[in-house]
């Protein structure tokens, strides 16, 4: 936990960033190395753990059957909830972490789905079982075990990994039902009957933190404490922007904004390929252990 920095340290940090060399030797657009583990919560439909530097998060996906919304009868629902555990920092005990948790949950939600719950990232119509009556509701839960900055980006990677690990069981409708009645259904227990998730459209989020006049990618907690403003941009594999959230701080010049967006698009290309590679490596590790 960063307590606070002296004036000298702050100066050193900002000067370093202005010169293109950060405190741990990284360049402005370098992401820290991260590792992905899949299926760590066996009782969830999908789960993942991502560690990047000292940041450590676990995400899980649980699918439950329920009624779809009346306004969208042919789509399932997705809910995202992030929690900052007290193990991450003592001030997260009790209600201390609530503000941060809420901010992270909303930012993720906005990037994966539009505000109204639809969105190109997850194919919601694939979650329908019986139109208008029965659908799968996905509950995506994230838990921050330890934080060293850049929580939003790491959580986005973890959500993508957990979704890639998710299996939705097949549902057999055993009796057709009239409009008012409940349908009878049987849920398959056979793991081979699970259908996977297509995560190729799930974006990654790049948070650009502006320190002085330069922006950096993947800020540590120390660097975040010196930010004037930050902007989180979600970019998918097609190179399209899926969501933007401006995080706190001072105002940004619009031209600077556009420049930051193009930087984010550039960085996202390499990040997406690294994330996909890590997920595949994690999957093969899991298969080896079987």
């Amino acid at each position: 936990m960063v307590v606070g920095l002296s004036a000298a340290e702050r100066r050193y940090l900002t000067d370093g960033i202005a010169q293109g060399l950060r405190n741990d030797g990284r360049g402005l657009y370098d992401f820290r190395a991260f590792s992905v583990e899949l299926a760590i919560i066996p009782q969830a439909n999908g789960s993942a753990r991502v560690r990047l530097g000292a940041t450590d998060v676990i995400t899980s996906v649980k699918a439950e059957l329920g009624r779809p919304q009346a306004s969208r009868p042919s789509q399932g629902r997705v809910e995202i909830n992030i929690e900052c555990s007290s193990t991450a920092a003592p001030q997260f005990e009790g209600r201390g972490g609530e503000d941060l948790s809420l901010e992270l949950s909303r930012a993720l939600y906005r990037s994966l789905l539009c505000n109204n719950g639809t969105g190109p990232a997850i194919d919601l119509s694939a979650l329908t079982v019986i139109e208008g009556k029965l659908c799968w509701n996905l509950f995506i839960d994230g838990l921050v075990l330890s934080s060293d900055g850049n929580l939003l980006d790491v959580l986005a990677i973890a959500v993508k990994a957990a979704l890639s690990n998710t299996g939705i069981p097949k549902v057999e409708v055993t009796s057709a039902a009239a409009a008012e009645q409940e349908a009878d259904f049987e849920i398959s227990d056979n793991p081979d009957d699970f259908s996977g998730f297509d995560v190729s459209h799930v974006p990654v989020i790049i948070t650009l933190t502006k320190v002085g006049r330069t922006y950096i990618v993947d800020a540590t907690e120390e660097e975040e404490s010196q930010m004037s403003s930050a902007i989180s941009i979600a970019v998918n594999s097609a190179g399209h922007v899926c969501g933007i959230t401006k995080r706190g701080g001072a105002g940004l010049d619009p031209s600077v904004l556009l420049d930051m967006i193009s930087v984010a698009k550039e960085v996202s290309k390499s990040l997406l390929s690294t994330v996909d590679a890590e997920i595949m490596a994690a999957e093969s590790r899991g298969d080896d252990q079987m």
Binding site: A39, P42, A44, G167, E283
Partner: peptide, 10 residues
């Protein structure tokens, strides 16, 4: 990979 999971969606 799926065999290690306990189905728990009901």
């Amino acid at each position: 990979m799926a065999a290690s999971r306990v189905s728990s969606y009901s």
